[in-house]
């Protein structure tokens, strides 16, 4: 029960953080990505704040066998730098620059009811499903 509550609160905290940080404003995200224009460095502060707390949390977690509530850690098992990682991230960056939305802020702005964010999220979900279908087909062919 405690764990379930933490998961809900985590989502809420994360959404509030995105709103407060300015990440839910595509104009601000693009202002950060616009080095050649009037540059808004705010997003570097978002990343700095997030990683500062994150470093401490992951430092604590790495020394433990289980979470504070006794749950097992779900560490990612892939460590190699492969082509999908790089190609996928490069494509993501193009979309991120084009609309100023990444997945989390898009979902929050979608929930706030902005029509373009609603369309963005629907297209994003289609993109995810298409990628899954492509990878499944690829996996079948290689067997």
């Amino acid at each position: 029960m405690m764990q379930r509550m933490c998961e809900f609160v985590t989502g809420l905290l994360f959404g509030l953080g995105l709103l407060l940080s300015g990440m839910t404003d595509p104009g601000k995200v693009q202002g950060f990505l616009d080095l050649a224009g009037a540059w808004d460095p705010s997003l570097a502060f978002v990343m700095g704040g997030g990683v500062l707390v994150g470093l401490m949390a992951f430092g604590v977690a790495k020394k433990r066998d289980a979470s504070l509530l006794g749950a097992a850690f779900h560490w990612p098992h892939i460590t190699q730098i492969d082509k999908p990682l790089v190609i996928g991230s490069l494509l993501f960056g193009v979309g991120w620059g084009l609309a100023g939305f990444c997945p989390g802020p898009a979902l929050v702005t979608f929930a706030a009811g902005y029509d373009k964010a609603v369309v963005f999220v629907l297209a994003m979900l289609v993109g995810m499903v298409v990628c899954d279908a492509m990878q499944r087909r690829h996996a079948l062919q290689s067997h």
């Binding site: 490069l90 494509l91 609309a99 297209a123 993109g127």
Partner: peptide
């Protein structure tokens, strides 16, 4: 952009 972000 949505398609690229989702796929990427």
């Amino acid at each position: 952009a949505g398609l690229l972000v989702g796929f990427g």
